[in-house]
């Protein structure tokens, strides 16, 4: 009875994940090795194509920059939120949750209005007489990064607020009572204790921006393709499924590698864990 219960109850979810996710994804990866030209021929082709490697490097670059900026903005903001009095704190958290619950399309779309040819930034700069011709800010790495930071900062703020609130007040007070200045306390006590949380936040943002589709589609366009948009284009526009599968395999490997390495690191650096 109990034997049936413990396996039986997990069975529907297990079957669904294995059949509809694990096997399809493994099949996608497997097809890349079945080419007549040799098992690794699609990968050789990928890495020999300047166009495609550029997209891979751009995607990595954009994901790294987005992660770094989100970390700094998110950490400083979370530090302020963690120190706010109760009421103000709830308002701040609602203000961070609201964008998070708003869709990616809607949030990316806002930046089209802001950065477009007739957007707010151009309008303002022209009416101030700083520029005479509208700047082309869309379809650049910059526009993609701005929108991605916008996308991921709320996630980082919420993750890190939780982390910073988890640093016991007494530990901070102990540091103070032992003569550490606020800056010394920040660098010697608060920051080291927040490192595991920072890593978790960084992994979330890195994988999220590395695999994003809607934002580069809207703000990067054809000129600034990323891995996600490239995959879609190969699969649904040129119907090069082997090429799309190759891109998929590279994305899976990089994502899983980053997640495993970083979460192992976070666990090792976590002093609270026994």
């Amino acid at each position: 009875m109990k034997r049936f219960a413990k396996w039986g109850l997990t069975m529907p979810a297990t079957i669904a994940v294995v059949v509809a996710l694990v096997i399809p994804v493994l099949l996608t990866i497997a097809t890349t090795f079945g080419e007549p030209k040799g098992a690794f021929s699609t990968y050789t082709a990928f890495f020999n194509s300047g166009f495609r490697t550029n997209i891979l490097y751009r995607t990595l670059r954009i994901a790294l920059i987005t992660t770094a900026i989100s970390l700094v903005i998110g950490f400083l903001t979370a530090y302020v939120i963690a120190r706010m009095p109760g009421r103000l704190k709830s308002i701040a958290i609602i203000a961070a949750v609201f964008p998070l619950l708003t869709g990616v399309v809607v949030r990316s779309f806002a930046w089209l209005i802001i950065l477009g040819k007739n957007g707010i930034v151009n309008d303002t700069l022209m009416s101030l007489g700083i520029i005479s011709e509208p700047l082309s800010m869309l379809y650049t790495e910059g526009s993609v990064i701005v929108a991605m930071v916008y996308l991921f900062v709320p996630l980082m703020i919420l993750t890190l607020t939780g982390v910073l609130e988890g640093v016991p007040r007494e530990v901070v007070e102990a540091s103070t009572s032992l003569g550490a200045t606020p800056i010394a306390t920040f660098f010697q006590v608060i920051l080291p204790l927040a490192v595991p949380g920072l890593i978790v936040g960084a992994v979330l943002v890195f994988t999220g921006s590395f695999t994003s589709y809607a934002t580069p589609q809207l703000l990067g366009g054809e000129q600034m393709m990323m891995m996600g948009t490239l995959l879609y284009q190969r699969a649904m526009v040129t119907f090069d499924w082997v090429g799309a599968s190759t891109i998929a395999a590279i994305m899976v490997v990089i994502t899983i590698a980053v997640v495993t390495i970083m979460s192992r690191m976070a666990r090792r650096l976590n002093p609270m864990a026994v």
Partner: peptide
Amino acid sequence: PILVPEIVFGFSLLKS
């Protein structure tokens, strides 16, 4: 489903 890139999952689901 969180770990595997969503776009890869979508593509694989369509394919298989």
